[in-house]
Computed example of a mutant assay.
Amino acid sequence: MVTDSTAGAGVGGEPECSDSLRTFGAVVQALREHAGLSRAELGELVRFSKHTVASVELGRRMPDPAFVERAEPALGNTGALRKAAAHLARQPGLAAWFRQWARLEAMAISLCTYECRVVPGLLQTEAYARAVSLSVPPLPDEEEMSARIAARLARQELLSTRRKPPTAFSFILEQAVLERYTGGKEVTRELLDHLLGVMERHWNVEVQVMPLRRPVHAGLDGPLQLLETPENQWFAYSEGQKNGRLITDRKEISVLQQRYAKLRSQALAPEDSVSLLKRMRGAL
Score class of each variant (00 low, 15 high):
residue 7 A to T: 15
residue 7 A to S: 15
residue 12 G to H: 14
residue 13 G to D: 03
residue 13 G to Y: 06
residue 14 E to M: 08
residue 16 E to S: 11
residue 18 S to T: 04
residue 18 S to G: 04
residue 22 R to I: 12
residue 31 L to D: 01
residue 40 A to G: 00
residue 42 L to I: 01
residue 42 L to R: 00
residue 45 L to S: 00
residue 75 L to A: 00
residue 76 G to H: 04
residue 78 T to M: 03
residue 80 A to K: 14
residue 81 L to C: 01
residue 81 L to W: 04
residue 83 K to M: 09
residue 90 R to F: 15
residue 94 L to P: 02
residue 97 W to E: 05
residue 99 R to H: 06
residue 101 W to D: 09
residue 102 A to N: 06
residue 106 A to P: 09
residue 108 A to W: 13
residue 114 Y to M: 11
residue 116 C to N: 12
residue 118 V to M: 11
residue 129 A to V: 06
residue 129 A to L: 05
residue 136 V to G: 11
residue 143 E to V: 04
residue 145 M to L: 07
residue 146 S to N: 13
residue 149 I to M: 04
residue 149 I to Y: 05
residue 149 I to G: 05
residue 152 R to F: 04
residue 156 Q to S: 02
residue 161 T to W: 14
residue 162 R to G: 03
residue 162 R to S: 10
residue 164 K to A: 02
residue 168 A to K: 10
residue 171 F to N: 03
residue 175 Q to P: 04
residue 181 Y to T: 14
residue 187 V to G: 15
residue 188 T to F: 02
residue 194 H to Y: 07
residue 196 L to K: 04
residue 204 N to A: 02
residue 205 V to Q: 05
residue 208 Q to C: 05
residue 209 V to E: 11
residue 211 P to I: 00
residue 215 P to Q: 04
residue 216 V to L: 12
residue 217 H to G: 03
residue 221 D to A: 14
residue 222 G to Q: 03
residue 226 L to E: 00
residue 231 E to H: 14
residue 234 W to H: 15
residue 237 Y to R: 05
residue 240 G to V: 07
residue 250 R to K: 15
residue 251 K to Y: 14
residue 253 I to H: 07
residue 253 I to G: 02
residue 260 Y to N: 06
residue 264 R to Q: 11
residue 267 A to W: 15
residue 268 L to T: 05
residue 268 L to Y: 03
residue 270 P to D: 07
residue 272 D to N: 09
residue 275 S to N: 10
residue 278 K to T: 11
residue 284 L to S: 01
